[in-house]
């Protein structure tokens, strides 16, 4: 596969369709610049700034863009709030749609058949695969990304995090908690 892709890249370069320097910038962007830390900052801000939180749940595209996160695969954003009674879970059963500007590239399991097939039919079983068990009183809302709207789950703020700064709060926000396959981490006492 390594040689196959290298050969393809060579042909595309020779034909002038691609700029090799652009390939390096693309890879660097998604390896080091655009990742779940972006989304974690959005969540931490929503946890601490009530005006921002309201904005995020009424116009997520603008609220997220105000922090500098927008564009490819996040052109239209909607934020979903996890509460004591509602847990949101995001999947793309048809391909691998994912909110790139806030979460970066999707993990392998997100693009895999087990997750895509079961998340809609057996969400509690999928959560169990991630070691997450929710009380029966919590209703699960699964969002299948079938168009170009992208969803960001805002996990519940963990107990004991009341005194933490926004920056420290962002450390508690995992990628999986913003997909809905995980919960935010508990603060270290």
């Amino acid at each position: 596969m390594e040689l196959h892709v290298r050969a393809l890249r060579t042909v595309l370069e020779q034909k002038g369709y691609i700029d090799p320097a652009a390939l390096d910038v693309l890879i660097d962007t998604y390896e080091t610049k655009i990742g779940p830390r972006n989304g974690a900052r959005v969540v931490a801000k929503a946890w601490t700034d009530d005006a921002y939180r309201k904005w995020l749940f009424t116009d997520a595209t603008a609220a997220i863009s105000s922090l500098g996160y927008h564009g490819r695969q996040g052109e239209m954003m909607v934020a979903l709030e996890n509460t004591e009674s509602i847990h949101n879970l995001v999947v793309c059963t048809l391909c691998s749609c994912y909110p790139w500007p806030v979460l970066g590239l999707p993990p392998t399991w997100y693009k895999s058949a087990p997750f895509r097939s079961r998340a809609v039919k057996d969400p509690r079983g999928v959560l169990a695969d991630f070691g997450v068990q929710l009380p029966g009183s919590v209703s699960i809302r699964v969002w299948d990304l079938t168009a170009e709207v992208r969803y960001l789950v805002v996990p519940k703020r963990p107990k004991g995090s009341e005194r933490l700064s926004e920056e420290r709060l962002a450390d508690l926000v995992t990628r999986d908690s913003m997909i809905g396959t995980g919960l935010a981490k508990a603060p270290v006492p």
């Binding site: 809609v120 057996d122 969400p123 509690r124 029966g136 009183s137 919590v138 209703s139 699960i140 809302r141 699964v142 969002w143 299948d144 990304l145 079938t146 168009a147 709207v149």
Partner: peptide, 9 residues
């Protein structure tokens, strides 16, 4: 699971 929902766009 009777409490859960699924949405599509």
């Amino acid at each position: 699971d009777a409490t859960s929902t699924v949405s599509i766009d």
